[in-house]
């Protein structure tokens, strides 16, 4: 079985996000970029499946600017086998990404697509679901436990009410959640090996996909500053405020 793992290059989770002065987006110039942390979890899970003898090959795919290659290299240094870069300067949206991934999946024929449940930059949480629909494959989102056996995936999903157990047929699209695993560090020997692993580069046009934006960004602003709190005199007053002002109980 092949496993396809889409990996996204995002602003590093340690960086304090700054909105551009002209309100067109967030500042990404001279800002540290790294792999979306949820995608790291997906890469880790793919490697574990391969180590367990359940997969033969792991393909890391990224879409975006030339430097997205570095994100693929990180996946290769963790243990993925080869990479595919769909290179474009276009501002990508989930639908365009899902369409490109669909074409790649149709060509590569993976048994499983493992991807982060969302990216920490736009928090869209749409690509896995769109991809599953486009491919007509089963999907399971927010996966925090995974077992593969007999052509099926047994998963635990983290949902509002608790955990949901599902069994779905492969091939499938799984979006992974935080508690699935702890990603490994890229070791120095694997960093050296990654240098020699192949990365195929193509454009959205090569895949026959039009990724031009369907959405228009009107304005990007900082979230409003949090207003200061108030001190309450008694428990009764607190309960009253929670019930009548905040309306949470």
């Amino acid at each position: 079985m092949k496993i396809l793992v889409p990996v996204k290059r995002v602003v590093d989770y340690n960086v304090k996000i700054r909105v551009k002065a002209d309100g067109t987006g967030v500042e990404t110039q001279n800002v540290k970029m790294s792999m979306n942390p949820f995608d790291e979890i997906a890469v880790e899970q793919a490697i574990r499946l391969k180590e367990a003898g359940l997969a033969e090959e792991i393909i890391a795919v990224s879409l975006g600017v030339t430097q997205s290659q570095e994100t693929i290299r990180t996946a290769l240094a963790m243990g993925a086998d080869r990479g595919i870069l769909v290179e474009t300067d276009e501002a990508l949206e989930p639908l365009g990404v899902a369409k490109c991934l669909q074409k790649i999946a149709e060509k590569e024929g993976p048994g499983l697509i493992l991807m982060g449940k969302q990216a920490i930059d736009d928090d869209a949480n749409q690509t896995p679901q769109m991809l599953s629909a486009l491919l007509g494959w089963a999907q399971a989102t927010y996966v925090s436990k995974l077992e593969i056996a007999d052509g099926k995936a047994k998963v635990k999903r983290e949902i509002d009410g608790g955990l949901e157990n599902l069994e779905i047929a492969l091939p499938a699209v799984l979006s992974v959640d935080l508690r699935l695993n702890e990603p490994r560090y890229a070791s120095l020997p694997n960093i050296m090996k990654a240098k020699k692993k192949p990365i195929d580069t193509m454009s959205p046009a090569d895949l026959g996909v039009d990724v031009s934006p369907r959405l228009v960004t009107l304005k990007v602003t900082e979230p409003p500053k949090r207003a200061g709190g108030v001190k309450v005199e008694s428990v009764a007053e607190l309960v009253d405020k929670l019930r009548n002002e905040a309306k949470v109980i």
């Binding site: 790294s34 290299r73 990180t74 890229a186 070791s187 120095l188 960093i191 050296m192 990654a194 240098k195």
Partner: peptide
Amino acid sequence: QEHGRETFDAALET
């Protein structure tokens, strides 16, 4: 010769 800025930066990152 097997090294480059890419491997240096990746090692520093780890």
